[in-house]
Amino acid sequence: MLDTIFFYLFALLTLLGAVLTITRRSAVHSAISLIVSLVGVAGLFLLQRAEFLFAVQIVLYIGGIMLLFLFVIMLVNLDRAERERQFSKAWWLALACVVGVGAEIAYFLTKGPAAFQFPPGAASPGVASAAAGGNVERLADALFSEYLLPFEMASLLLLVAVVGSVILAKKRI
């Protein structure tokens, strides 16, 4: 019961934030509404017992990425942007996307969980390692055993990104 109440609370928060993000005129207001929406999503993660995703959502998205957004917004000229046309002319494209995704969701809602049933014999993730402990422990286990290689590769990816941003942005190298 409590779970259901919290679900609707967080879902409302998410939707409200999302709607405000695209309807506010001021970019700062939009950014703050986006934070509200992301907090809602973080709450939904927590309801699903995904503590790690919850923490990542708070630390990375709300803490890191949104801060970056706000910085960028402060750097650009807001007065001019506010006087410009606020809505993109390609609304029909957005409408097509919404209809497409809506149809997809409707399909899965009508079909129920059967649509994502694993074929017999395939290992279903999560069940096998359910005994290993909580969500965070299991994630760490998978990350440092089964997915050790991609995890380490990501460090190279970040190195390249840093080198690239320095090369492209610095005047004299």
Binding site: P150, L157, V160, V163, G164
Partner: peptide, 19 residues
């Protein structure tokens, strides 16, 4: 031979090329 390895490998290559 793994989707994540392939994807990270692809991004590693692509990122170098963007630069």
């Amino acid at each position: 031979a793994d989707l994540i390895t392939l994807f990270v490998g692809l991004e590693l290559m692509a990122l170098c090329f963007y630069i």
